[in-house]
């Protein structure tokens, strides 16, 4: 109750506040226990491992706010990366166009999801599960199951890797994480979109009460579909980030990334029942997972412990939300 009067509490909301505290505590924990965890390079690698999950999570936040789910964003990401890589190598499409097409394809898959959910009224879980399987298969079909290696930094067409990490003379050894700045920039834009524009308000409203929103004369079909398109576009963007951070993209992968994105979103306080959520929370959630992933090896644990602990964090975060709701009597 004392917390009620705390301004910070009001601004962030309980769960988000808890998430910020957890993020800080985790970081300090690893700094204290792990040698060199506090080093610049480590910090950069935390950020490196969060770009594409961050993009996925921002996109999927919109879908979850509508009360839906997007299981396909991980495989859409890999599929888009594979197709655009194939366009570049096999058809000689210029790199800049490949990258644009990559994002556009993501949007197109999102539109398919949006159509199935908002117009055909399929359950989001099933519709996006279908898209997940289709895109996972499609990536393999297009590449004939060969992996795609995007040009390295040294090659002329490797310039795009610099979007996410600048390296070079006079720059620190780990490079400058420009991708991080890009992620923050897009997060700010999308937070503005969600909270301060008409479409954002409608997406929030229909997640809160779809029928009441429809009966207020709002075109809920359009705005619900838009949420999936946004998720798709961000999956396309994540594909660009993924391609520029990792040297090789393997067909048949991408499963599980969507769950990282969803987990980040939910840890950040977005409610799976819709109507409640924030981009800032989602970013915090994603960083919590990245810190875990990067930090655990520093205290002598293998990376797969990340999954193990993320599971606990996820359940604890959602349980905190459930408790909070119960206390408020909703």
């Amino acid at each position: 109750m004392m917390l009620k009067n705390n301004r910070l509490f009001h601004i962030l909301g309980t769960q988000r506040l808890a998430a910020v505290v957890a993020l800080g505590a985790l970081y300090l924990f690893f700094c204290a226990l792990g040698d060199n965890f506090a080093a610049y390079n480590t910090f950069v690698s935390i950020l490196d491992s969060s770009y594409y999950i961050g993009f996925l999570a921002i996109g999927v936040t919109f879908v979850i706010i509508t009360g839906g789910i997007d299981l396909s964003c991980g495989t859409v990401m890999v599929c888009c990366a594979l197709i655009s890589g194939t366009l570049y190598f096999k058809l000689g499409v210029p790199m800049w166009l490949c990258l644009l097409l990559c994002v556009a394809m993501g949007g197109l898959f999102g539109l398919c999801n949006g159509f199935m959910v908002a117009v055909m009224k399929l359950p989001a879980f099933i519709a996006t599960l279908g898209t997940m399987m289709v895109t996972r298969g499609l990536g393999s079909i297009v590449t004939a199951t060969a992996s795609v290696t995007f040009p390295p930094r040294s090659a002329g067409d490797g310039w795009f890797r610099g979007i996410f990490k600048m390296m070079g003379d006079g720059l620190p050894g780990g490079g400058v994480p420009t991708g991080f700045l890009l992620l923050i920039l897009l997060a700010v834009i999308m937070a503005f979109f969600l909270n301060r524009t008409r479409p954002g308000r409608y997406i929030m409203a229909l997640g809160s009460n779809k029928e009441a929103t429809r009966l207020s004369g709002v075109n809920v079909v359009k705005w619900e579909a838009l949420a999936y398109v946004i998720s798709g576009l961000f999956a396309g963007l994540a594909a660009v980030a993924y391609a520029s951070i990792y040297s090789t993209v393997l067909p048949g992968t991408g499963n599980g990334f969507e769950l990282d994105g969803i987990a980040g979103t939910v840890i950040g306080g977005t409610s799976l029942s819709g109507g409640v959520g924030s981009i800032a929370g989602t970013l915090i959630g994603v960083f919590i997972m990245s810190v875990l992933k990067t930090g655990l090896p520093f205290v002598g644990l293998q990376p797969h412990y990340q999954l193990f602990f993320t599971g606990f964090v996820l359940v604890a975060a959602v349980f905190a939300d459930v408790l909070n709701r119960r206390r408020r009597g909703t």
């Binding site: 809160s208 029928e211 409640v276």
Partner: peptide
């Protein structure tokens, strides 16, 4: 059910 966004 049909008129309000309760948590807004």
């Amino acid at each position: 059910r049909y008129g309000l966004l309760l948590e807004k």
